[in-house]
Amino acid sequence: MTTLRTEGLSYGTGEGRHLVDAVDLTAADGETVGLVGPNGSGKTTLLRCVYGTLRPTHGRVLLDGDDLATLPVKARAQRIATVPQDGHAGFELTVGQVVAMGRAPHKRFWEADGAADTALVTEALARVGITALEPRTFASLSGGERQRALVARALVQQPSLVVLDEPTNHLDIRYQLEILSLVRELGTTNLLALHDLNLAAYYCDRLYVLKDGRVVASGTPEEVLTAELLGEVYGVAAEVSAHPKTGAPTVVYLPEGPGGRTLLT
């Protein structure tokens, strides 16, 4: 039931530079939508406008038709959960405490967590497979474990939209796959920025390709990930083919010039 739409969304700096420029984006109910694009293409800025820590300079972000700019911070947090790029928690909070913070938007500030809240935390920890880590301090976790804990926090928040900024950053391949599988299984509408095009092709229903703050292509991974587009957006030569096992478009980058292996054929 949750649809995210941005209309002409722009975010500009004071000097008149547009980090995000007139972006129209839609994520339909239950869809996992990926943002890809080179560094500095505006992915993070766009996400921050969506989850509300940046105010768009033009345009609107609509969640089920409600303009996010008109929603109080707390009402927004009841509907949108955010998994940040590098989650950290000061002062040695435990994993259980960090995950339980997901209940905050649903509580009055003086209200303590009840049995139902505790049950949600326990369930979320089990779902992401870190039940045993609950008493550990968040700071002592590995990158993959932290990311799982933050996904658990997002679950506890019971949102309709989950926004993830490079959730696979700095993770080992195995954890990258696990986190993205987890995200797909949440059943929420998901919007995520991803670096790795092959992961994006495999895990996202649709992709938006950003360059210099603008959407240069959008559609299913098959439609979007073409050799021409990669050449145009990233300035690399690449070959895209459907993977024989997964069927997803698979990108292989082709080195140009000296220094690499000689190409066969």
């Binding site: 989850y51 509300g52 820590t53 109080p72 911070v73 707390k74 927004r76 947090a77 009841q78 949108i80 959960a81 955010t82 940040p84 989650g87 950290h88 928690a89 000061g90 002062f91 909070l93 960090v98 913070m101 997901g102 905050a104 938007p105 928040q157």
Partner: peptide
């Protein structure tokens, strides 16, 4: 507040 300004904001704190 212990999870930082942005972290607290997305958890609903003004």
């Amino acid at each position: 507040l212990l999870v930082g300004e942005e972290g607290a904001t997305v958890l609903g704190l003004d």
